[in-house]
């Protein structure tokens, strides 16, 4: 959902984009990851050798992917459930307590959107407005209540991250 919505908003903003999801063979409860490429020109490879940004929402993802991040890249961690921190010193790390913030807003399922707020603040890949419009398109007009919480969650994540 995070990846799909980001790719959708990048497309809306006029970029070339690819979204490559990867799920385990489990029916439920497996880990999932996805790769999004965003570029001004046609995207050569949707498979990333060294991503510029890495977002991890759980522990297994941190262990699996931390070393793929390019030197000088930014790592976003859902600090509500990920206690560990990477040993690498050559990257920027942003700990976002997504779960806690989402819970305080009334729905823990908005954790991912809190993270998207922080991610957009740091990367400026798309504007909050463009992202919200994409989210609305994806979720459909029926889920008004969910959109209300999502809007708040996005703003909370965005405000949380102080960028100097």
């Amino acid at each position: 959902m995070m990846g799909y919505s980001l790719a959708h908003s990048a497309m809306t903003a006029g970029y070339h984009t690819t979204y490559l999801p990867s799920y385990g063979a489990e029916m439920r409860g497996g880990t999932a990851n996805c790769t999004i490429a965003v570029a001004d020109e046609e995207i050569a490879s949707p498979i990333s050798s060294e991503p510029d940004y890495l977002v991890v929402m759980n522990m297994p993802s941190l262990y699996t992917f931390q070393n793929k991040l390019t030197p000088g890249g930014a790592l976003f961690i859902n600090s509500s459930i990920v206690d560990a921190r990477p040993s690498r010193q050559d990257i920027e790390v942003f700990a976002v307590p997504c779960g806690k913030i989402a819970e305080s807003l009334g729905d823990i399922r908005a954790s991912n959107i809190v993270m998207m707020g922080a991610f957009i603040r740091k990367t400026s890949l798309v504007t909050l407005d463009t992202y919200l419009r994409s989210l609305e398109t994806i979720m459909g007009s029926k889920k008004k209540k969910a959109m209300e919480i999502n809007t708040k969650a996005l703003a909370a994540g965005y405000e949380l991250l102080k960028i100097s």
């Binding site: 790719a7 497309m11 070339h16 984009t17 690819t18 490559l20 999801p21 990867s22 949707p46």
Partner: peptide, 9 residues
Amino acid sequence: GMMGQMMEP
């Protein structure tokens, strides 16, 4: 399988 799952405009 990658192309089947991959999303692009």
